[in-house]
Nucleic acid binder design. Structure first.
Lengths: 215, 215
DNA sequence: CTGAAGGTTTGACCTCGGTCAAGGACCCGT
DNA sequence: ACGGGTCCTTGACCGAGGTCAAACCTTCAG
């Protein structure tokens, strides 16, 4: 928890006060911490594991709007309610705070607000970049982009242990499971990637992959 | 400028200091203030008019990733470079600051960072909500959603003076101009909207429009 | 009034990706 | 090893939306 980015700019006294506000929790893969539309009660940092942020249409179509990696922040400070669900993709542990208590604390500690602002701006850039993918890219381009994004965020060299199922990949990319599968085999047959197992992937031609990913 | 939200929480002395940092500029419809990939030099508030934020793929497909209304903030504080272009949709006037000067000022005035954080969080919610539209909604649902969003943000009752051309609507929605046009006529024939002119639109059945918009 | 230039609508056709359905591969407990 | 989940892949087919092309408006200059 001390290593998490929100706290790292605090002096010892403030850090102590903050740690008194928070508590460590564990969730199992598949558990949902926050439901879309619920009141925003929890915020916090991810210590280990990965989570997804998702929304659904009235008739149940799902879109994953963000993937949360260790040290990322979750929850919606300074807002009445949450606009998306937060669900664990893997077993995860987090350091969470009551939203209103955290809001008060952040308001009194400019460093926290600054760190949060920096983070939120990065997230906004990422979300907008993803809008280009969802609005304009073909299925193959989307899959290629996702592979590159994951390899970057997991700082995996070449071999990636996929953190997402095919269904989850489809939900991030705005595609169906079948199209994801077909795009992967297409990239495989082109000699750009290999799939040693269903959850393992190696990038054989990074340059070609990049060229496909951004048109 | 005094009415713009970033400044409104400042005391008179700080406000004076801030106003000394900024200057008022005017841009014509079509002019681009910031180019994607350029160094982030400008930030500021929109006083009047509307602008778009956009990105393009390697081969030139465009996606509008945000529409900026009066009193909204533009630019990327605390970051080396801009991830999207900023282009005026209409003639517009802005109050702009040098990015590094603004960064320094914001860092010293917690109220500014707080206001910016609140705004950025709202933008992030909006962007993620739009990802659902781009990833999962049909053409008609997208067009219906856009009409409702615009009527809300322009707080127009029923009759909307469309701020976007068909091409721009297509670029926000991740569609082509033809599909936008076809969806509009479909909604018109269903008696949900009417189109008294190419840039005028009235909502005749708001409830039906809402039901279409969110599946 | 006329004609040229944008933007918009409409139609005909085609393609990419969705849908439906049938295998495969893998994991796990017995 | 066996059977029954679950997840993944592959194939055949279909349809929403893209593409291409033509016709329609506006607007504005001459």
């Amino acid at each position: 928890m001390r290593a998490s980015a929100i706290c790292c700019s605090l002096d010892p006294v403030a850090l102590d006060a903050l740690s008194r506000l928070g508590r460590k929790i564990h969730v199992l893969a598949g558990q949902t911490l926050v439901w879309e539309g619920d009141e925003s009660i929890l915020v916090g940092n991810v210590l280990a594991g990965m989570l997804k942020l998702s929304t659904v249409t009235g008739d149940g179509r799902e879109q994953i709007v963000g993937i949360v990696y260790p040290s990322d922040f979750i929850g919606r400070p300074f807002g009445r309610d949450s606009h998306h669900s937060v669900t664990a993709l893997t077993d995860a542990s987090l350091c969470v705070f009551g939203r209103s208590a955290f809001d008060r604390f952040a308001h009194e500690h400019g460093e926290v607000e600054h760190a949060l602002l920096a983070r939120t701006l990065v997230e906004l850039d990422r979300a907008r970049h993803w809008m280009l993918l969802l609005g304009r890219k073909s299925a193959c381009e989307r899959v290629a982009s996702l592979i590159l994004e994951m390899s970057a965020r997991l700082n995996a060299e070449q071999e990636i242990a996929l953190p997402l199922s095919r269904q989850q990949m489809a939900d991030v990319l705005g595609l169906t499971i079948e199209t994801v599968s077909r795009s992967l085999t297409k990239l495989k047959h082109a000699g750009i990637i290999s799939l040693p197992g269903t959850r393992r992937l190696t990038i054989d031609a990074p340059d070609k992959l990049k060229r496909i990913a951004d048109g």
